[in-house]
């Protein structure tokens, strides 16, 4: 694909914008949910689990970012961050429900 600024088709620009949003927001959602799941489920002390969750969440964010720009289409970018987010949301939700009666 040509990269001269004027010659880029609109569809391409929209796809890049969509991927960027998937990375920025979808990636953050995934990282946050991974953070929550780790903080709630890791069998170490409460503060240690919180630290572990936060420290690893940045790596999740990083991988999500890379995924969103490496995959073949913008749709896959969204699917790739939202599907694992949904799974983590269920896991984290169950854990949260059990811990706070």
């Amino acid at each position: 694909m040509k990269r001269t600024a004027a010659g880029l088709p609109l569809a391409y620009r929209l796809a890049v914008a969509s991927r960027s949003l998937a990375a920025l927001l979808g990636g953050y959602l995934l990282a946050s949910l991974a953070n929550v799941a780790l903080a709630l489920l890791t069998p170490i002390s409460q503060v240690d689990a919180a630290l572990l969750g936060m420290m690893l969440s940045f790596l999740v964010y990083l991988l999500a970012f890379i995924w969103c720009f490496a995959c073949r289409s913008a749709w896959r970018a969204w699917a790739g961050v939202l599907a694992p987010s949904a799974l983590l949301a269920v896991i984290a939700g169950l854990a949260y429900g059990m811990q706070t009666p």
Binding site: S32, N35, L38, Q46, A49, M54, A92, Y96
Partner: peptide, 25 residues
């Protein structure tokens, strides 16, 4: 700055009492 930019874990684990996280830490 992780407590500021990635607060979800602390919020879920400590509920409203984020101060308790800092005193634990």
């Amino acid at each position: 700055f992780m407590y500021m930019v990635m607060p979800a874990g602390i919020m879920a684990s400590y509920g409203g009492e984020t101060n308790r996280y800092f005193s634990d830490l």
